[in-house]
């Protein structure tokens, strides 16, 4: 009557997903942002973003293999947020904080948006 918890399991799984992404293995969607193409796993996008959840949970989109985001979305902000989804690290600095905030709002990543907002406020 005991249970063994592998305390780093969540991180180990995420690391492997990121390795799969970097090698473009089993990625099942391409996201186009202002002409730039990003390969990803739908399940990760859906797990991290309310926007992608809404898109891919629609039955008519279940086999969607490519998606274009609003042209107003900044590719750099999206790239940072995609890296965050796969690593838990958000590489913020003053030059990207605002665009990352706006992209996080667009992707309905409220907790990350709150963090970006606090980061910006702390710098002014």
């Amino acid at each position: 009557d005991g249970c063994i918890q592998f305390t780093r399991h969540a991180g180990d799984v995420l690391l492997n997903f990121n390795r799969l992404r970097s090698r473009n293995i089993l990625t099942d969607v391409t996201v186009q942002v202002d002409g730039q193409i990003f390969h990803a796993h739908k399940a990760i996008l859906v797990a991290c973003s309310g926007f992608f959840y809404s898109v891919f949970m629609k039955p008519e989109n279940s086999s969607l293999g490519a998606i274009s985001l609003d042209p107003k979305v900044d590719p750099k902000g999206f790239s940072l947020l995609l890296d965050f989804m796969y690593t838990s690290f958000l590489n913020l600095n003053d030059s990207v904080a605002l665009t990352t905030l706006n992209t996080a709002i667009y992707l309905q990543m409220e907790h990350v948006a709150d963090t970006c907002h606090r980061f910006i406020k702390s710098r002014h």
Binding site: C3, Q5, D12, L15, R19, S22
Partner: peptide, 21 residues
């Protein structure tokens, strides 16, 4: 798992997919 005695295993939990073959 509430109420269950939990033993913490802090080592790697799964194999590591290589960066490149």
């Amino acid at each position: 798992y509430e109420g269950v005695n939990t033993i913490k295993e802090r080592g790697r939990s799964i194999h590591e997919i290589p960066r490149q073959d």
